[in-house]
């Protein structure tokens, strides 16, 4: 790995290790690919679920976004990061989860994982989070090294948090932008200096939960929502990009009930939300008329607020 600077490889034993309630295994892949609506394949990196004995070097790429981590409030969790070999360094930071420093997955306050490390933490608050790599983060998160992290209340999925609203249908929309020029850089790009242009993101693709928001996300299973009148929809909206976003719910009005893994003191009624990088909003919808509602996410320039691009999906109410 030649010229990497300011990285801190280690694979210590997990301090005060206990038997967990639930374990997730994650292995790195750096040869993934996402096919865009214009036919281009863009390289992505991420985590595969290696829990089924299918671990190793991930020669077949992997899913984008990375597989969700879903736990229940109160559970002690082990997230095992397997990063074998000496090829590259990565971490897992459970964004919004607040564990000890050793388990926070930030390279320069603890270590970058070379080998295997088991992150140990206990899910204290139900809500929407995400996990992502925190090594040369500017590049690694842009390359797609993230996945959803959902903490359900102790009673399990179906309720946002204990005492909070219940839901019948759930959507997880992780909205991200790609600058395809960044996607050919090496894992340690410019860590020793030099200008890799990492201060200047010029996105050319706009994505909802791994799917091109130009066309595909309008109908992609797992992104587009189909529900019946009388049902309750929970949208877990994650700003997984770097630029500010504005999400409009296609004329539907919802209730924001929690954000960043914490209930709001009182729900707030919205038809659109402005967000910045890594914010999460949990929005409840009870549509009372059938129809097709086109949800639009605008990606906004951080300087002049101009719309850099848009991703779209649909809520179809039968």
């Amino acid at each position: 790995m030649g010229g990497a600077c300011y990285v801190y490889p280690d694979s210590p034993a997990t301090p005060d290790r206990v038997t967990p309630d639930v374990t997730f295994e994650r292995t790195i892949y750096m040869n993934g690919s996402v096919r865009m609506d214009d036919g281009r394949n863009i390289t992505v990196w991420g985590f595969t679920d290696s829990g089924g004995g299918m671990g190793g070097m991930g020669g077949m790429g992997g899913p984008f976004p990375s597989p969700a981590i879903r736990v229940r409030e109160g559970q002690i969790v082990h997230t095992v990061l397997n990063n074998p070999g000496m090829m590259w360094l990565h971490t897992i930071h459970h964004h919004g989860i607040e564990p000890s420093t050793m388990n926070d997955g930030v390279g320069h306050t603890s270590f970058d994982v070379q080998g295997t490390y088991t992150y140990q933490w206990r899910a204290a608050h139900a809500g929407t989070y995400f996990y992502h790599c925190h090594t040369n983060t500017v590049l690694h998160a842009e390359m797609g090294m993230y996945g959803a992290l959902i903490v359900d209340p102790p009673e399990g999925p179906g309720r946002v948090f204990s005492g909070g609203p219940s839901y019948d249908v759930e959507a997880i929309w992780a909205c991200d932008e790609f600058d395809s020029r960044w996607h050919n850089l090496p894992w340690d790009a410019a860590t020793c200096g030099g200008d890799a242009g990492l201060n200047d993101l010029n996105p050319d693709y706009f994505i909802i939960t791994g799917v091109d928001g130009n066309r595909s996300a309008l109908t992609a299973p797992g992104v587009a929502v189909t529900m019946n009148r009388g049902q309750t929809l929970l949208v877990r909206y994650i700003n997984a990009g770097y630029y500010p976003q504005r999400i409009r719910f296609g004329g539907l009005t919802g209730q924001v009930v929690s954000s960043d893994g914490r209930p709001l003191p009182a729900p707030v009624t919205v038809s659109e939300i402005n967000s910045v990088s890594a914010e999460r909003y949990d929005v409840i919808f009870n549509p009372d008329s059938s129809g097709v509602y086109t949800v639009e996410i605008e990606y906004l320039d951080w300087i002049d607020g101009s719309v850099l691009g848009m991703a779209r999906t649909r809520i179809t109410v039968n």
Binding site: T101, A141, A190, T191, G193, A196, L198, D200, Y242, A278
Partner: peptide, 19 residues
């Protein structure tokens, strides 16, 4: 010890690199 950082990660660089 923990970090506070900007999450618009372009801000975590200097001169186009140096994360």
């Amino acid at each position: 010890q923990y970090v506070m950082h900007l999450h618009d990660e372009m801000t975590q660089t200097a001169g186009g690199g140096l994360y």
